[in-house]
Amino acid sequence: MNGPDTWRRWALSLPAVAVIMLFSILPLGVVLVYSFLTPGDFGNVKWIFSTDGWFSVLFERNIFDDTIGLSGANLSILFRSIILSVLTTLITLIFGVPTAWFIATRPPTQRNFWLFLITIPFWTNLLVRTIAVQEMIRSEGVFNRILLALGLIKEPIQMMYTDFAVLLGMTYVFLPLMVLPVYAAIEKFDFRLAEASYDLYASRLFCLRRVILPLIKPGVIAGSILVFVPSLGAYVTPRVMGGGKSMMLGNLIDLQFGQGRNWPLGAALSITLTVLVLLALIWYTRLTAGRKERDHG
């Protein structure tokens, strides 16, 4: 490509690139810098170099005898974030894949209707959907009322403010993110292939394992990453459903910039979370790149 055209292309891209540089990349750089400073007494930072922020991600000094130990609280929140995100991904897979399959195998005229139904929650405000699912599990919510009416329980079960509530909320709000990419993969699938393999006396299981699964795999991977990444960084759903006790990484970060008044620790946790997300994305590109290579090979 010759010089002038490269310049023209750069010039056309420049406004978008500049906005993102200024309002997304530069601020992240500042967060990285802040993670190496000293916390101010009442929030903010003092411009004194310190690695305490990073140290406190995993370790803590005992309040009373100053001995150093692993930070149980931070580790449990990190652990909870990962476990809940994995579980959310798995549950949305269990529900999402058959649903996508169901939609893709409807006659084309009906298909649009089902797609429409799955798109509405996808485009509905996240907070509104969180409020809706919260209503289900409150002490006087629908679940408890049904269980009480059936005589299965005598007292309402406490579901709000538990890990279960956070998991349920995230599954509910992220489910459409799983269905859509899996659907896109299945839709491209030529069903005559499966029928052909079946006619060749392949067993049902064989057909499923060797023909269908490989074809929907890219959709499953894409859906998993689309659910896992926002789950890991979730903030709104755990805040509403977890009540400040069943916290995830996003809430822990928020706490450090408010009540906790330890900005460097909050900054270090922010970088940690971003790195975790990037690792998931790199794993995803590896996985899809590997597939393409095999396809070509």
Partner: peptide, 9 residues
């Protein structure tokens, strides 16, 4: 980048 991280930044 997770939303909360961008917000803090």
């Amino acid at each position: 980048v997770p939303e909360i991280v961008l917000a803090i930044a």
